[in-house]
Simulated assay, not measured.
Amino acid sequence: MELTTDTLAGIPGLQLSAIIGMALQFLFAMLRVGAFVVSAPLFSARFIPLQVRIILAVFLTIPVMGFAQVPPPETLATLTAVPWMIRELVIGLAAGLVLQILFSCAVMAGELVASTAGLGFAAQMDPATGTQTPVVGQIFSLFLLATFVAEDGHLAALRIVIDSYALIPIGQPIHMGALIEAGSEATRAMYLFAVQLMFPVVSVLLIVNVTIGIITRSAPQMNLFSFGFPLTLSITLIQLYLTAPSLGPAISTKIESALNALAIMTEAAAYGG
């Protein structure tokens, strides 16, 4: 059968301009969730390849295209879309950085425990950040990430970001002050959470150090490093072992607070102008 012009005209298909327009809308919708994947804890860890993050952002954008109000390609191809693009990146980065700041409380608590116990020299490369951190801080950080995954906190965080497309449609103005306030509040909460996590161990170490100081003051012939450091190290390990059962619920509470802070930030940013 010979194909005529009328036969070819009846074959359904997409024009190249329509395909490019759909790809432009898809990439524009991926900016927010992609920025979150790049900056959020666990997803932004160095042991996760960049290719995996890109694939994850693509798959997360597929359900977004089903309900998000994406502007038409004609509008996205103009200079009007440049502020929208910056706004989408700001929302995603702010969401990821709020969680990153709050999750830093575990590393800070571990570093303070290590410095108080004299374990600051025991540092190695952190697989998540690629920097040198004390081993105690890495234990706290990995424990927090394990609890975060075990309680499906990563799914809850992704759900909040995806739901933000309904709260803050693409192109809608946002309240920048709400994002700045959320970052400041997250920083304040980070120090508070770090103190709460380290206090059970550091409080006992403070008493031990005062006792060692009194002993060395009353008996100067006793070498501080001969009995003080082994005693402090032993008590630190015992305290970490004894406080491990209560550390899980405490970290779970901090994760819940971080997710609540993320949800509050997206809701507050939606009322902008």
Rank of each mutant, 00 (worst) to 15 (best):
V113M: 03
Y165K: 07
P169K: 05
M198S: 14
F148H: 05
V98Y: 00
L197K: 14
V135I: 14
V136Q: 13
L158I: 15
G153L: 10
L145M: 12
Y191L: 10
P169W: 10
F143T: 15
Q196Y: 06
S141P: 02
S141T: 15
E185T: 11
A166Y: 05
V98I: 11
L155V: 07
V113R: 00
Q138T: 07
L179G: 01
A156L: 09
T131Y: 04
T133G: 01
F148S: 06
R188D: 08
S104V: 03
Y165P: 04
F103W: 04
A178P: 04
V107I: 14
V136S: 08
D163Y: 06
E181Q: 12
I101R: 00
L155D: 08
A178V: 01
V149R: 12
C105F: 13
A117R: 09
P200H: 14
H175M: 02
L119F: 15
Q138W: 07
M108K: 13
V107D: 11
Q196N: 14
A94G: 03
V135E: 10
R188V: 03
F199S: 11
R159F: 05
E151G: 06
R159M: 04
M198K: 15
F103D: 06
V202Q: 13
A182H: 07
A194H: 07
G183E: 06
G96C: 02
M176T: 05
G130T: 07
V195P: 01
T129R: 09
I168W: 09
G130R: 08
S164V: 03
L144N: 06
V161I: 15
T147N: 15
F140H: 15
L142A: 13
Q196M: 07
L197W: 14
G130H: 08
A114C: 07
G171F: 05
R159N: 13
L167K: 11
G110Y: 10
Q100F: 09
G153E: 13
A146I: 07
A189W: 00
L197S: 07
P127A: 09
A194S: 15
D163W: 05
G110T: 11
V195E: 14
Q196T: 12
F103C: 01
A123P: 02
F121C: 00
I160N: 01
D163F: 03
V149Y: 12
V136D: 09
G153M: 12
T116F: 10
F143P: 00
T116K: 15
I139V: 15
